[in-house]
Design a protein around this nucleic acid. Structure first.
Lengths: 282, 282
DNA sequence: CCAAAAAGAGAGCAGCGCTCTTGCTTCGGA
DNA sequence: TCCGAAGCAAGAGCGCTGCTCTCTTTTTGG
């Protein structure tokens, strides 16, 4: 499959990669709106029409960049998951991760305002891991604002292929799910409330993905995942400009409370007798 | 000021309004990316260069549409606020609401999956008002996806004027603040926790805007406001496609919990003795 | 070795935002 | 009332875009 079948095939993959790299460069520099096929071709020393041998249209190129961006944010999340204490085998091996292009996200490590726990320091700080994963996603978004906008901002091309991007888009979510699953298995989750109207949907999702979690937690995870990107989008898209300065702190507090929303408990409170409430309500 | 100074001036305002209306039509139909000055001019029976007598550039036109969109969502929120029980004089009269263009949002009323309380039914259901305001914003977003994307999606022109849009952008937020303020004045808020790192910022914001609220609530409001748009954006931008069906229910539950996050209590629980905890933790 | 497939090069089309020049209309002061 | 000034529409045009078509060159496999 991956063996080299000839010089021509080899050249093709190289040129394809070069086009994507240059496109990614322009995307990071100027944003998706300014990405121009002609400029990419110009930079690569070829004529614009030749580029259509590799990508049938501009939107097709953008779609590939979208998939790569999803992979990058998923990779950043999984990396933070692995660094925050190996409580369980990190992520399921499925969903074909396109190993080639996912390496790009390797540079993202600094997750500001978060103190990761040691690899083997007694009881696992599940809330800490949760916060670390959220912070990793945020750090990636702030480091790659245009790529973030490409996937979590307005859908740029006429509502691009949704089905193709579902799998890579879920990688990040599964990192948070892993944290919750580990906490649940360790008995560290008090399932939140779940309305009767929402319960069937939550149970369907739990079964559909074979999650080892109560449906209450699954529903809360879904909402938390969406709300996380509200916080990140406001920061990346400048809604906090001239308004909020202590963004690290706001994000840290908000993600901690999101962890409480899915039923996870802080470490300190857990030890104080049988109080299972998040610190806010003690 | 608003008197007619001559036929020429009258014609100018009319043409300007016609341009904006047509631009808004194209924006709603095709999205900001497809909005073309030439197409607007064509539709209005004029040549493209003539349009530059009214708007110096395409970005300038877009900026006006952005301001209008902020006003529309703010108006929708305030309308839901007024409909959900007049607990206090709805919103401060400041921030020059551009009355002319804000009328457009008058059609937005249906806020699915929410049962507004009667105008004078004993104790005010603050959480219900909160949910109603959130639902109104969501309903507007779903009804005007492209205009929503314009203001809460990726910033399209080279990071458009942020200072000019700050005032109209805050109208919606102030609607939620009003709900919290009313609840606070009625003694219906238990301030959540606030980390020491975030407290100075929260106190600064409280003072800056002269809010009659504890800083704990202000910090939680800020985070909740951002998280609300995470939920809405996921739905409008299609992140829930092929994944979540019961979106009304998910949104209702999530916004109810956001209300709890800022310290508001459900009506039923309040009556049951001295339990001040949200229903989830009882 | 040679036909077939693949790739590059160039011209060209329609559209875009925007500028500049050229006439025409309207306004306000002498 | 007239006339210069200002406002406005129209047209041509510039440089850019995505994309198509044709023609030539290069590489491949039988």
């Amino acid at each position: 499959m991956t063996t080299i079948r000839g010089a021509r095939e080899r050249a093709r993959t190289e040129v394809t990669a070069a086009i994507k790299d240059e496109a990614r460069r322009q995307l990071a520099a100027e944003g998706a709106a300014k990405l121009s096929l002609r400029a990419v071709a110009r930079e690569l020393g070829m004529v614009s029409s030749a580029l259509y041998r590799y990508f049938p249209s501009r939107d097709e190129l953008l779609t590939e960049l979208i998939v790569d961006a999803y992979d990058a944010v998923g990779s950043a999340a999984e990396q933070a998951l692995a660094a925050g204490g190996p409580a369980s085998s990190a992520t399921r091996a499925g969903s074909a991760t396109r190993a080639g292009s996912a390496t790009r996200a390797g540079a993202v490590t600094s997750a500001g305002a978060v103190t990761p726990v040691g690899p083997a320091s007694g009881p696992v700080d599940h809330v800490g891991r949760w916060i670390a994963v959220c912070a990793a996603v945020r750090a990636w978004a702030l480091a790659h604002p245009h790529e973030y906008a490409l996937i979590y901002g307005s859908p740029v091309p006429g509502y691009s292929a949704p089905l193709l991007t579902v799998a890579p888009a879920s990688r990040g979510a599964f990192a948070l799910i892993s944290v919750a699953r580990d906490a649940h298995r360790a008995g560290g989750i008090t399932p939140p409330a779940l309305s009767d109207e929402l319960r069937p949907e939550a149970e369907r999702l739990t079964a559909q993905f074979g999650l080892d979690l109560p449906p209450e937690v699954v529903a809360a995870l879904l909402a938390s995942w969406a709300q996380l990107f509200g916080l990140i989008s406001f920061e990346v898209f400048g809604q906090f400009n001239h308004l909020v300065e202590a963004r690290d702190e706001l994000f840290a507090q908000a993600t901690r409370r999101l962890a409480h929303e899915v039923g996870m408990r802080d470490l300190g409170v857990e030890e104080a007798g049988r109080a299972v409430l998040p610190r806010e309500y003690v």
